[in-house]
Design a binder for these strands. Structure first.
Lengths: 206, 206
DNA sequence: GATATAATCTTAACACTGCTAAGATTAAGG
DNA sequence: CCTTAATCTTAGCAGTGTTAAGATTATATC
């Protein structure tokens, strides 16, 4: 008997997992179907029994990340019982998700044609933000302004997420605010970014 | 004599221009050195006399776009004499630049490792924004908060730029605010986006 | 349980890619 | 004018996505 049976048994799942890992470590640019196949101990054409083409494969990997992202936001939302802080917490969660897996960001938001209007995490953020705005500005401003403020908030958070994706920016930012630089303590860095996002977001009146 | 002389005479420049045009129309994903070479009437290996590799070529194209972007911001800044509106105008200019050439956005900001801390248009925006903030909050808030507000402003504008890059979002947004939908009148659409950005940005107190 | 069918995998091949080495052609400078 | 450097072509390598044909195995049906 050779190393593996003729049938892998779990190839589709393994390809997706290896794809995730590869993108997280190297980015999507250098990912190839053939390499993933070989890594999974299978011939270079085997993946095409499970995915129509590379694009379809990447799309499934995207969905996987999107689910993780949505779940993260959902958990943050549910565990926040202070209605005053829900947007702040959601924003921090948003930024931290991508700052912990920087290469996911460009993979999801540039290298694909996501349907922005039906993209679950965006809908979720916009819905919650809209609700919060409605509570805060109850009848004081028009529906129009509520929508504008929601968009402004979303754009700001999304922009910050991209910034904190870049190591160079993180370094510069941590120097600028003169925090104790515990470079390698990753849990400390997470907390530092957490504080930074809190400060930045609450520096504007929305 | 054949179609062209053995020496092209202006190959480097033509490749960059064709690269710009190709990215603007098709995105960087499907760009290949060979295609550009053939389009320029030259053999497929000729480009490598002018560029070390594909990455170096794309980097030069990036610089080209970056210059255009910086110039656009600069012109906007210089032609705005109302100190109260300078940030608003700069933000609109920022967003409009990429909404007019959507594929430039993902090409510049994802498919490359720009040195964010030395990236001219970012430095420019941050400097101007910082100065304006200093004027507005003259001594009333700390240097720290000024920096945070500057970052918040930049992130918001940058996030909006990405949003207005997506046709699906533009449609949805124009429906939401119930503007007259002059779909094909591109100059009208520019003005519409211009108004939208103005409204969104001025909906938050920064 | 045998057999038909469908799913999965391998091998081989095609067209395309980035890129290089070797040599041809032309421009520039002494 | 002649040397040198710049520019281009031709061939070719290794790697890519993808497909067609056929081998192997799981699944369902009688």
């Amino acid at each position: 008997m050779s190393k593996r049976a003729y049938h892998h048994g779990n190839l589709k799942q393994e390809l997706i997992e290896r794809g995730l890992e590869f993108i997280d470590q190297n980015g999507v640019e250098s990912l190839s179907m053939r390499k993933l196949a070989i890594l999974s101990g299978v011939s270079s054409a085997a993946p095409y029994a499970h995915f129509e083409n590379k694009e379809a494969f990447l799309s499934e990997v995207q969905n996987y990340i999107t689910e993780q992202f949505t779940d993260t936001l959902q958990e943050t939302y549910e565990s926040c019982h202070d209605r005053q802080r829900v947007l702040l917490e959601l924003g921090k969660s948003y930024v931290l998700f991508f700052s912990q897996n920087p290469l996911y960001y460009s993979f999801i938001f540039s290298h694909g044609d996501i349907d922005i209007n039906n993209y679950p995490p965006f809908q979720m953020f916009k819905n919650i933000a809209g609700n919060v705005m409605n509570e805060i500005y109850d009848g004081k401003i028009g529906e129009h302004d509520i929508y504008n403020k929601t968009l402004a908030m979303w754009a700001m958070v999304h922009g910050l997420a991209q910034l904190y994706t870049l190591p160079a920016f993180r370094m510069m930012d941590s120097q600028k605010v003169e925090q104790k630089n515990l470079q390698n303590a990753s849990s400390a860095e997470i907390q530092r970014i957490d504080e930074r996002i809190e400060n930045i977001l609450s520096s504007v009146e929305i």
